[in-house]
Amino acid sequence: MFQITDKAITTSELVSLAESPSAGALVVFEGRVRNHHHGKEVTALDYSSHPTLAQPEGQKLVAETLEKFPDVEKIAATHRTGHLAIGEIAVCIVVTSPHRPAAFAACDYLALQLKNRLPVWKHEHFADGSQDWT
């Protein structure tokens, strides 16, 4: 399951979507807005996404991860758009598997894919008033 959303992410909702009685491992990753980037103080971020491509691309990446890690039982992932303050969750991934290694590896893999392949852009606002697109 993947969702792109402009609402605040509630991790517990993703946990309940991914948990399973046969899964002995449940890994949660929260990508949060941090207050610094390349030595500059960050005050907030704006995420924008392609309105029609981001959702299917995210679903594709989740499906690809499930295929690559056959021991994984379920994945629930979501990416936020809009204006985010420091500490807010930008991306959340929950992965379950019978044993620990597959869940950790799949979670890390999907986090990297979402970073590089999801049509989403980050506009950083810095404390010194400057801003930058990444």
Binding site: G31, Y47, H50, H79, A90, V91, A111, L114, K115, N116, R117, L118, P119, V120, W121, K122, W133, T134
Partner: peptide, 10 residues
């Protein structure tokens, strides 16, 4: 047409 710069999710 749309032009997409490098993605920066997460």
């Amino acid at each position: 047409v749309a032009f997409l710069p490098p993605f920066a999710g997460g």
